[in-house]
Amino acid sequence: MLVIKDLMVNYGKITALKEINLRVYPGEIIAIIGANGAGKSTLLRAISGLVKPKAGSILLNCKEVGGKPAPQITNAGIAHIPEGRQLFPEMTVAENLELGGLVLNNYKNVKENMSEIYELFPALKERAKQKAKTLSGGEQQMVAIGRGLMSEPDLILFDEPSLGLAPIVVEKLGEVINNLHRKGMTIVLVEQNAYMALQLADRAYVLENGQITLSGESQELLQDGHVLKAYLGG
């Protein structure tokens, strides 16, 4: 579904990613783990068109999307739920969700998807008319996820969705991701919480200093000595 070949991304003179090769098959959950500054968010930004790659290619269903602007990528069926939520702070929860469905042609689908999201996160339904900036961190994270789901994506890129959430909410989030997986959604999950990510994912890649240093089945990585030591605190 997604094939990345020799991807390189620079910020000015700084090289943030190089020689990235990665594949995501339909229906998979892929985890990307790595330390702060490893380049995880940059990888997602390159996929969703928020940064332009310096070199390499990104193929979505065999079509080159590398370097295309973000709105076009969203239209092509990728939803990026960015680090730090990035909501529209002065707009209501309902408006935030509605904007997530902007790429849909049919307004009826927008309404239907919205009620699905409210079913998924009942807390949001109560706050539908509240400005996004007045919500708690966890609730804002739900809005961000809901907004991403509104566009009926084929592939979802999650950037640290568990950041700042209470353990019980993280658990709920795991369930949500698992449910999406069961519905056949393809997911790329970037997490600081490596244990959670590896539990959820089929396969994983380890990013260090902008390069992929390790990849494999999640279950294997959970037992890998280096991963244990560097990311699982073992």
Binding site: P71, T74, Q86, F88, E95, L99, L102
Partner: peptide, 23 residues
């Protein structure tokens, strides 16, 4: 209106706007 929401969204967060498909 839709255009109004697009205008407000763009003014509040350009990055998020482009992620929801706003040019």
């Amino acid at each position: 209106t839709k255009i109004g929401k697009i205008l407000r969204a763009t003014s509040q967060n350009v990055t998020a706007a482009s992620l929801v498909g706003i040019n």
